[in-house]
Amino acid sequence: MLSTIILEDDLHQLHVIEEIVKNRIVINPTPHEYDMRVDLVTANPDEVVQFIQAHQAYCLITDIDLKHKLSGIDVAEIVRNNSRFSEIIFVTAFGQYLPLTITRHVEPLDFIFKSDAEGPMPQRLRETIDEAYGRYLKFIATPEREVERIAYHPTKGLVKTVAVDQLFYIQAVKGKSRLI
């Protein structure tokens, strides 16, 4: 299940975003509800930091200026560094912070301006939720194990790798030191 977190300091905007997300979970381009839910709706970044310790996959929808010691970018960075899967959507009025999201390596899925609340903002948020859910489905469909690889040198200066589970056996070459 994709856990959705909404972090916004303006209570009106918080409820608007929450309604858009809840409606999109139920009413979407697929014949079924999305396998996601809104687990946390808050104006306090500290609650988000505590919440992410217990869950693995998130869709974080956040403002940037939260009138708190932690900004939305700080929280997004914590989420990105502590989860196996996370999609981050900024819904903000502060476009000047977009370059900061790049330099801090937050990798947001989208950067939506609040000023479009009556126009394209709700539609863009719905489309971004669709994209985040599609990426989540791809994430859960891939195997979780990492493939262990072994490196070898077939000729001087050339390094190749092969997956360990693809090897049948390894044999040392007699009379040649360090060759297998």
Rank of each mutant, 00 (worst) to 15 (best):
H68L: 06
F85Q: 14
R104Q: 10
F51H: 12
T101Q: 00
L98Y: 12
K69L: 06
G95N: 12
P45S: 09
N82L: 05
L100K: 13
I73K: 04
V38C: 10
D39A: 04
P31D: 11
V79M: 06
F85H: 13
N81I: 04
F85I: 10
V75Y: 01
H105Y: 10
G72L: 03
C59M: 12
A76H: 01
H32L: 08
T92F: 02
E77A: 08
A54T: 06
Q96R: 07
H68R: 05
G95E: 07
I89L: 14
I102M: 14
E77C: 03
R84L: 13
L66V: 02
V91H: 09
Y34A: 14
P99L: 11
A76S: 00
E47G: 00
E33H: 06
V79C: 03
N44G: 01
D39W: 07
V91E: 12
M36F: 01
L66Q: 05
L70W: 15
F85D: 14
V106G: 09
P45R: 00
C59T: 11
H55N: 15
H105T: 02
R104F: 06
E87T: 12
E107A: 08
I89W: 03
I78G: 02
R84Y: 11
S83A: 15
D74T: 07
I52S: 08
F85M: 08
Q96G: 07
I61A: 10
Y34M: 14
V79G: 09
I78T: 15
H32Q: 08
A54R: 07
R37T: 15
G72E: 12
Q53C: 13
A76E: 00
Y97R: 03
V38I: 05
I25E: 10
G72A: 08
T92R: 01
Q50V: 00
T42A: 11
S71K: 02
L66A: 05
Q53K: 15
I61Y: 11
P31R: 05
G72Q: 06
C59E: 14
Y97S: 11
V41N: 07
T103F: 05
I25G: 03
N28D: 07
D65K: 00
D35Y: 10
L70T: 10
S71E: 12
I25Y: 04
E33A: 05
G72H: 03
I73E: 08
K22D: 00
K69R: 14
Q50L: 11
V49G: 00
Y34N: 09
D46K: 01
D39L: 04
A76R: 00
E107D: 04
I52E: 13
N81L: 06
Q53V: 14
V79L: 04
F51T: 03
